[in-house]
């Protein structure tokens, strides 16, 4: 597969490459949803820092991915949307389509949010 996935404790971190085809994205979706179960992951971080374009297909696929991952018991955070990508997404009306999926500026913040959510989850149980 084109996208490297790192396992970091209870989390999976996928680093999307600069030029992702639709096929690459769909493949990533399938692999991540499966790995969340295999590794009993509590969170998935999608790092899009390198991505050249977030068009309607990529946005829809990332949202579907996050929803499927939630059904498998883990949270998803998208990290590293660059300023020009954010601007293009707003113009396309894609910001609304991604709502419901958490986004952060960097990996550190994403890990902190996932840790906090896990602790809150444990306290509730």
């Amino acid at each position: 597969m084109k996208t490297p996935i790192l396992k970091q404790g209870p989390y999976l971190i996928a680093s999307l490459q600069a030029e992702q085809s639709d096929t690459d994205l769909l493949e990533l979706q399938e692999v991540l949803v499966e790995q969340v179960g295999r590794f009993r992951s509590r969170g998935v971080i999608l790092d899009v820092t390198l991505l050249d374009v977030m068009d309607s297909f990529a946005t829809r696929t990332l949202r579907n991915m996050a929803q499927a991952i939630r059904l498998r018991g883990a949270e998803t955070i998208i990290v590293g949307i660059r300023p020009e990508i954010a601007f293009a997404m707003v113009q396309l009306g894609l910001d609304v389509r991604l709502s419901g999926v958490q986004t952060t500026l960097d990996l550190e913040e994403a890990l902190a949010i996932l840790d906090r959510q896990r602790q809150e989850g444990m306290c509730r149980d």
């Binding site: 030029e19 050249d52 374009v53 977030m54 068009d55 309607s56 297909f57 660059r82 300023p83 020009e84 990508i85 601007f87 293009a88 113009q91 396309l92």
Partner: peptide
């Protein structure tokens, strides 16, 4: 086609954010 457009647009002197807007439109 996105890569080709980026290369042509860069030669013309488009800004980095315009390159992304062009590549996104082209992708659609």
């Amino acid at each position: 086609v996105r890569q080709q457009a980026r290369a042509l647009a860069k030669e013309l002197g488009f800004s980095a954010s315009d390159l992304t807007l062009i590549a996104t439109a082209l992708s659609e």
